[in-house]
Measured scan of single mutants.
Amino acid sequence: MLEGKVKWFNSEKGFGFIEVEGQDDVFVHFSAIQGEGFKTLEEGQAVSAEIVEGNRGPQAANVTKEA
């Protein structure tokens, strides 16, 4: 698991990027966000996630919002 913060997230398109210190930004799709209801993230929000290899490079999986 790694910790980072949301760089930006487009709720209409359902994707965005997470900033991780010392690494390239990581793509995040709404389907990777854990929880019930409408899955979205806010800019600057702290999150933790796993990194997996997607079709277009590294992407976030099992994204959870930090308190």
Rank of each mutant, 00 (worst) to 15 (best):
M1G: 09
M1C: 12
M1D: 05
M1Q: 11
M1L: 12
L2V: 15
L2G: 04
L2N: 06
L2T: 10
E3V: 15
E3A: 14
E3P: 13
E3W: 15
E3H: 15
G4I: 05
G4A: 06
G4W: 08
G4R: 03
K5A: 04
K5W: 10
K5N: 06
K5L: 09
V6F: 03
V6Y: 02
V6R: 02
V6A: 02
V6C: 07
V6I: 09
V6N: 01
K7Q: 03
K7C: 08
K7V: 06
K7D: 01
K7M: 03
W8T: 00
W8H: 00
W8R: 00
W8M: 01
W8F: 07
F9D: 00
F9E: 00
N10M: 06
N10R: 06
N10S: 11
S11W: 11
S11K: 15
S11P: 11
S11E: 07
K13H: 09
K13S: 07
K13R: 11
K13M: 09
G14K: 01
G14R: 03
G14H: 02
G14V: 02
G14T: 03
F15I: 08
F15K: 00
F15E: 01
F15R: 00
G16Y: 04
G16T: 03
G16L: 04
G16P: 00
G16V: 04
G16E: 01
G16C: 06
G16H: 01
F17A: 01
F17I: 07
F17S: 01
F17W: 09
F17R: 03
I18T: 00
I18Y: 02
I18Q: 00
I18F: 02
I18V: 05
I18R: 01
E19P: 02
E19I: 12
E19Y: 11
E19C: 14
E19F: 11
V20C: 07
V20R: 08
V20W: 08
V20T: 05
E21Y: 12
E21S: 10
E21L: 11
E21Q: 12
E21M: 11
G22S: 05
G22I: 03
G22P: 02
G22V: 03
G22N: 08
G22K: 04
G22T: 04
Q23E: 09
Q23Y: 15
Q23R: 14
Q23S: 11
Q23N: 09
Q23G: 10
D24H: 11
D24G: 13
D24L: 12
D24E: 12
D24A: 14
D24Y: 11
D25L: 10
D25C: 12
D25R: 06
D25T: 07
V26A: 04
V26K: 03
V26T: 03
F27T: 01
F27Y: 07
F27C: 08
F27M: 01
F27G: 00
F27W: 05
F27K: 02
V28G: 03
V28Y: 03
V28W: 04
V28N: 02
H29P: 02
H29S: 03
H29N: 02
H29Y: 07
H29M: 05
F30R: 07
F30T: 03
F30S: 04
F30L: 05
S31R: 08
S31F: 07
S31Q: 06
A32V: 09
A32I: 04
A32T: 06
I33G: 04
I33H: 02
I33F: 04
I33Q: 03
Q34H: 09
Q34N: 13
Q34W: 09
Q34A: 11
Q34C: 14
G35Y: 08
G35I: 07
G35C: 12
G35F: 08
G35N: 07
G35M: 13
E36D: 11
E36M: 11
E36K: 12
G37H: 05
G37E: 06
G37K: 05
G37R: 03
G37T: 06
G37L: 05
F38V: 06
F38D: 06
F38Q: 05
F38I: 06
F38L: 07
K39S: 04
K39N: 06
K39A: 06
K39W: 06
T40A: 07
T40W: 12
T40R: 08
T40N: 08
L41A: 01
L41H: 03
L41V: 03
L41I: 04
L41D: 02
L41K: 01
E42G: 09
E42R: 14
E42Q: 13
E43K: 15
E43V: 15
E43A: 15
G44D: 05
G44T: 04
G44F: 05
G44W: 05
G44R: 05
G44S: 05
G44L: 03
G44K: 05
Q45E: 11
Q45L: 07
A46I: 14
A46V: 13
V47D: 01
V47E: 00
V47K: 02
S48V: 12
S48I: 13
S48Y: 14
S48H: 13
S48N: 10
S48A: 10
S48P: 02
A49D: 02
A49W: 13
A49N: 02
A49L: 15
A49H: 09
E50L: 13
E50P: 03
E50T: 13
E50N: 12
E50C: 14
E50I: 15
E50S: 12
I51M: 09
I51E: 02
I51W: 07
V52D: 03
V52L: 08
E53N: 13
E53S: 12
E53H: 14
E53Y: 15
E53T: 13
G54T: 14
G54I: 04
G54R: 08
G54Q: 05
G54Y: 07
G54W: 08
G54C: 10
N55G: 11
N55W: 15
N55R: 15
N55T: 13
N55A: 14
N55F: 15
N55E: 12
N55Q: 13
R56W: 15
R56F: 12
G57M: 05
G57W: 07
G57E: 01
G57C: 07
G57V: 04
P58M: 10
P58S: 08
P58Y: 10
P58L: 12
P58R: 15
Q59Y: 14
Q59W: 13
Q59I: 10
Q59D: 02
Q59G: 03
A60I: 03
A60S: 03
A60K: 02
A60C: 06
A61H: 11
A61C: 12
A61S: 10
A61K: 11
A61N: 09
A61W: 10
N62D: 04
N62L: 11
N62R: 13
N62A: 09
N62F: 13
V63N: 02
V63D: 01
V63W: 02
V63H: 02
V63C: 05
V63E: 03
T64S: 10
T64M: 13
T64L: 12
T64H: 13
K65R: 11
K65L: 12
K65I: 14
K65P: 10
K65V: 14
K65G: 08
K65M: 10
K65N: 07
E66Y: 15
E66A: 14
E66I: 15
E66P: 11
E66S: 14
E66V: 15
E66G: 14
E66W: 13
E66D: 11
A67T: 12
A67L: 12
A67D: 11
A67N: 12
